[in-house]
Simulated scan of single mutants.
Amino acid sequence: MRILVVEDDRKTADYIVKGFAESGHVTDVIPDGRDALFQATREAYDVMVVDRMLPGLDGLSLMKALRAARVKIPAIFLTSVGGVDDRVEGLEAGGDDYLVKPFAFTELLARVNALSRRPPAQEQVTVLRVADLELDIVKRQVRRGGETIELQPREFTLLEVLMRGEGRVLTRTMLLERVWDFHFDPKTSVVETHISRLRAKIDKPFDVPLLHTVRNTGYSLHAPR
């Protein structure tokens, strides 16, 4: 599951990200409501966790703007504002659930899982495709040119992130955050090593390369141009 956490308190965000990572989920964290609006309208997420008190654009305004833009990502408010009227206000703004701080992570995880199981308001993409490369998110399968490709869990996550960002250049820092949940540079070649392994599996056996290195910038996965 890919989750967007909109939270400006770093300790709270780190705690949430750690818990989701241990449960096998990929998490992006954005501390600013306006930046989160931009991100959520351009990237695919399974669930959003949103604080109400945010810089740039508060949580209520963020949800109203997303729903007005017909972005239907399930969202749970996670906030210290917990009166009955506040909860009603959050739900009427477009939130699907409401949890008050302080909170137990196990409850947050259970609520997020419940939101992800709800029937989608519109058909959600479960198979990503770039040229003849296919990644089935539900079945956890990868195929290219009709041939099955076996990937390790971290390689699968790396490929999913690259395919979701098709055509965009993803920097080493972005990959460290989205795939390994590192919000610092570990001073290792973990990204380069996994890129090399992934390229050996999805590119080298085939005629046309899809995974490209952008010198001094990062990596991009796209069909031939």
Rank of each mutant, 00 (worst) to 15 (best):
I76Q: 04
K18Y: 05
E123A: 13
V169I: 15
D97R: 09
L210N: 05
M163V: 10
D85K: 14
L66V: 01
E147V: 11
A65F: 04
A200D: 11
G24L: 04
S61W: 00
P209V: 04
T213G: 03
F20C: 09
A13Y: 01
T79Y: 02
D32L: 05
E150S: 13
V88G: 12
T126R: 12
L99D: 04
V191H: 10
Y45K: 06
K204L: 11
A200G: 11
V84C: 03
P31A: 11
Q39K: 08
T193K: 13
H222K: 15
D132R: 08
V84M: 12
G165H: 15
L162N: 08
L210I: 10
N113E: 15
S61K: 12
G59H: 09
E43K: 10
V29P: 00
G56V: 06
P120K: 08
R215S: 11
K204T: 14
E192M: 06
R118F: 04
P224F: 01
F182T: 07
I195Q: 01
V71C: 11
G95K: 08
G165N: 15
A75C: 12
P119Y: 01
G24C: 02
F38H: 05
P31W: 08
A114S: 11
T12H: 06
A68N: 07
G24T: 04
G95T: 00
A75R: 02
A44Q: 11
V81Q: 15
I202Q: 05
P186L: 09
R117N: 14
R199N: 10
P224M: 00
H222T: 13
G90R: 09
L170T: 09
H25P: 00
A110F: 06
R10H: 11
S61F: 00
G94Q: 09
Q122R: 12
V138A: 14
M48G: 04
A223Q: 14
E166F: 07
P55L: 11
L175H: 07
K64A: 10
R154D: 08
M63S: 03
T79V: 05
L162D: 09
R140F: 06
V179N: 10
W180N: 01
A110G: 14
K187H: 15
A36S: 03
F20M: 10
A21R: 15
Q152E: 15
D203P: 08
R129W: 00
R225H: 08
L115R: 12
Q124P: 01
M1L: 10
Q152G: 12
E22Y: 09
G145L: 07
A93R: 11
L37Q: 00
V17E: 05
V214R: 07
M174A: 12
A114L: 09
H194K: 08
R178T: 02
L78E: 04
D32G: 03
